[in-house]
Each structure stands twice: as structure tokens, then as C-alpha cells.
Design a protein around this nucleic acid. Sequence first.
DNA 1: CTGAAAGCGCTTACAG
DNA 2: CTGAAAGCGCTTACAG
Lengths: 335, 335
Amino acid sequence: MPVSIKDIARLAGVSHSTVSRALRDSPLIPAATAQRIQQIARESGYTASAVARSLVTRKTQAIGVVVTSIADPFNGDLVDGIEEVANQHGYSVILATSQADPEREMAVVRSFGERRVDGILVASSRVGSLYLPMLEELKIPIVLVNNQHRSDFAYSIAVDNVHGAYQAARHLIELGHRRIGYLGDRLGLHSDEDRFAGFGKALAEFKVSLPKEFVVYGDGKLEGASIAARDLLHRSKRPTAVLCYNDISAFGLLKVAEECGIMIPESLSVTGFDDITFAALARPALTTVRQPRREMGRKAAELLIAIFNGSPEEKALVIRGELIVRESTAPLSAS
Amino acid sequence: MPVSIKDIARLAGVSHSTVSRALRDSPLIPAATAQRIQQIARESGYTASAVARSLVTRKTQAIGVVVTSIADPFNGDLVDGIEEVANQHGYSVILATSQADPEREMAVVRSFGERRVDGILVASSRVGSLYLPMLEELKIPIVLVNNQHRSDFAYSIAVDNVHGAYQAARHLIELGHRRIGYLGDRLGLHSDEDRFAGFGKALAEFKVSLPKEFVVYGDGKLEGASIAARDLLHRSKRPTAVLCYNDISAFGLLKVAEECGIMIPESLSVTGFDDITFAALARPALTTVRQPRREMGRKAAELLIAIFNGSPEEKALVIRGELIVRESTAPLSAS
DNA sequence: CTGAAAGCGCTTACAG
DNA sequence: CTGAAAGCGCTTACAG
């Protein structure tokens, strides 16, 4: 048995109420008494029980975080940002992995409910709405990070996909490209729709037309993107630039271009989205839109804590990413 | 207020003791009653309070994990492995970051103590012994992953540094190299000592001598390693192969080699240690010793859970890494 | 089978 | 200032 407040009370010859107050620096207790008691607590190796405290305060000072997998560097950065501000404010983070399995995600969130976490953060989920009722019952606020759910329950924070893709498209247009393709993600994610919308916005603004056959869809993975890319590049009249849904898709396309002997960026400019670590290291290094992962984690945690304190600024935060120009894009060559 | 066991008792017209039993499928309760009560619980949106339960059972079903930073892919994989088996066994993981700051690590572990986690996992720490007394008082077992502390308190799990370096060295020797350098980490980490020992073991076994000036020390980072590498490669009589403490050091050396116009692997073979993601992507791709990060996380969690169940197999587990031969090593050329 | 009781380790009105 | 009391939401001997 760890030593409890009662043990200290006995040692100090006071009631346990007094010990409790002394340990929490209550103004009711004279400094001298408080110090004596704290001293005894220290010497006896006392460690307060957060679980007992939580039971009465109804606060656990813990926030639950759900990601698909932490091995993914994107989530690593995100969680790092979350943990940073959580820690700053005296909160612990309970981390769980959904493995992109909705059932598992449900189970995880249920377990967070049982643990009575003060709030929940969920990254890139498509199933947020399933557990909303339970969280509402428990009055546990939730903030969704980059979620694919288009509804306004709960709070959310996401990159500005429209603006990010707009920047990338504009960059290509300013390089002189007029025949620009889009390699998307057929899963119909909102992020894909939004990026396509940003792409379209730039085209419209500069009066660049988009032939239907310049739009192809992979699955956001290397293989699927490669297949779509083959489709796009093997035409007689192919685009001189392609805006890809994400970096992985862009690498799929780059691979196919290499196979076809298409020089990058001389004969084809390519942009990605995300700025995964490899984007900077690849040859050619990829021009892409950086998602400020760590900052998003920080903002998400700050939002949650603001909610705890009753001062949520906005329900839905949008963060802009930055266009990172590297080697995979170049001015349209005269050729 | 969330609905409690008492509310259900009222609704069901039984005592809260009976509800508690019914909810836990106690054999004392007839199936019919249990189902009726469970039904009511479900309908009323009951979610058991793990904190109340923990207070009486003295188990939180939670394990605390301390890493320097989760943004580091190494730790990401590790934590993923930990979370996987923790989750399998019904444990939650509370994750905290030390930022390589001993004070912060202490604070984090203290907070884990207050939360009464059932066990603690600490990765790559050098300060484990500081909080040992507190954990002992609280009877919270701890397992150290790849720690630099040479003492047998607590449990531990680590890569077999000696064997890993031995394999790398042997690989170089078998390629015909006889003039092999070592680029270490001057911080005097045990992992450095062990890797150097494995290196020495291979040299001894094959009767390869090691000139003193073939051993240089960086700091495990790119810059420090580069300085040491310059020292090593700028001699008149330089080694034909270098075994580096870790991948990062190897990349520092590769950079210097490039500056000096030394061809890799034609004129110099280089090995790393860790197999960070970039090792496979770099040009030339790095020959290195892979640390099975995810598996280490799994094993660490399994060890901890075995301790909970009173059946810890061994106090100190050692896991072997695998030599991954890529492009940075080649047979000693006749030149 | 079921309930009343005690207790886990705290916090905090309520009296004095 | 200080203590006795109640209570947070559960579990589990102990009686019946």
C-alpha cells in the first residue's frame, strides 16, 4: 500500500482534512503547519493518488488521442505537438491507435469515455459521428483533426486544402503551364474534393481550361497512383504539369515518368501535397505543400484546452500550409 | 453527471451491488436478471467509470511510456509496437515526452506515479535510476528500453549492440577489408562501447589489427561525425572501410567522402547502425544493422505484462538486429 | 441469489 | 484555523 493522506495525518497528529489542505497549499492553513506537514509527506515518500482526486473533482487532467498509427511520421509530429501543449498545461495524453479500423476506433473512444478523459482528439477519422452521442452524454468535448467528416458536430481543425492546392496550381500556371493534369484520390475524400476545388479555382482565375481526360484518380498510394499516372502520361497529348493529391501519389507518377523516359522537371512539372520527409530527400526533390503537422497538433490541443476553460474561440480552425518549391517543377520549356 | 450504477439500481429496482455484479457478469447473478440490468444500462447510456473502479481494484490498466520525442521515427515505431500489445491485453498507454531533459523526465515519471499506472516503459534514458526509489515505494515495475544505464535494477530490453556491430565488421572483413576504421560517439554511451566491442571482437577473430588512428569520435550527429570523418579521411594512409556508430554518423562520413572525391563504395566501404528510413533511400543506399524497433516495443510491453502477471521470464532481454547489405559496401578493390 | 456495509484515497462544504 | 462528515462511483467480503 502506498502511503496515504491518513498515514500522514497520523504522523503529523492532525486530521486528514488538514493534511489534504496543507498539501494543496490551502490559504486556510498557516504556513508553518503546512510546511511541517509537507515535510512529513516528503519524508514518508507520499505520492498523491490522482485517481482518488479525479473521483471527487471529476477531472482527470487527461486527454485521449486517437491516430491511425504513430509510426506514420505525420502522426508522430502531430502527437508531438499535442503532447507539448498538453504537458505545458498539466494534462497527460492517453494515446491509442485505430489502425484505420472503425470498430477499433469505437472501442478506443469508449475506453476513453470510461477513463473519463477531459477531452478527446481524433486525427484523420471518417467515423467521428459514431461515438458522438456517447461523448455528449459524458460531456466530453472532442476535436477532430483533418477529419473527413463534413458536419459541424464537435470542434475541428484542418489544413486549408483548397488554399494549398490553389497555391500549387498557381505556381504551375505562373511557370507558364497551361496543360495541367490532376492526379487525385478516388476514395472520394473531402480532402481530395477540396484540393481539386483549389486546383479548379486557380485554373478559373487564370482562364486555363481543363480537358476531362487530364483528371485521373489513384488511391493515394504508390501503386494506385502509378496506374492512374500511366493512364495520364501514355496519351499522345499529355499535360506539361500535374498537380497530385499527395506526395505519395506524386512519387507514383514520378516513377512512371522515369519509366517512360520523361524528364522531370524539363518535360513535366509535378507537385505533391503534405511534404513528407522523403519529399525533400528524393531526386528530384518534390515541390509540394507543407502541412504544418506539429503546429496543427499544438493548435488542436490549445483548442481543446480553451474548451475546457469555456472559451473556445472558433468551432472550426483552418490552418494554411506553405508551398515548398523544390526541383520537380520548372518553367514550361519552349520545346 | 453521467449515469451511475446507483441510477441503474433505481431503474431496475435492485441494489447497486446487484447492478455491479450483473454488469460484470458475476456467476452469482442469474442470466435473466443480468440481461435485464445490462439492457437498462445500455438504454440509459451508462458508461462505467474506470477511475472509480481503479480506486478499489488498485489497478488502472494503464502503462506509462516515456520517450524523448515521438516525432523521431525510431520512437514512433517503438510506441506503435508497445501500443499494439498493450491494447491487445486491455491496457491503455499514457504517453509522455522527456525532450531528453532529465528534469522533465523526472516530472513525467512522478506524474505517472500519481496516476498509479500499473507499469512504466522508458526508452533511451540515462536517468532511470533517479526515480527508481519512488517507483519501488509505489511498487510500479519499470522496463527500460535501450537504456544507457548499466545496472540491474528494474527490467530492460535492448538491441544486441555487440552482435550487431560484430556482424557489420565481419561483413567488411569478408569483403576483403583489412584496414577498417571506427567512427564512434564520444559521449561515452554504453551503446557505443558495446558496438566498439563487437567491432573489436570481429577484428580479433579474423586477426585484423586496428591502428589507433583509425578510431575517431563524433557525437552521433551529422556535424560532429563530419568533423571526425574529415580527421579520418584526410590522412595519407586511410582505411578502406569504416564502421560507423549509427546511420547519422555514416551519413556525415559519406558527405565528407563526397567532398574529398572518394568514391563509395569503390574506394571506401561504409556501414551504419539503426536502419533509419533514409538509409534505404539515400544514394548510395546504406549498408547497416537494422534495429527491430516495432518488435522491441512489442517485447517490452509483453515483458511488462508478464511482470504484472508475476511471470517475468528474464530481467534483461536482448534482441538481435539484422545486417542489411545495400550499396555502401563492396569488396576491397585491387586498386 | 441479494442487500447492507465497508472501504478505496481523496476534497470540501459545514460547524465549531 | 481545524475536525467530523459526507460523498465521488465503484467492488466485494459478510450476512442472510
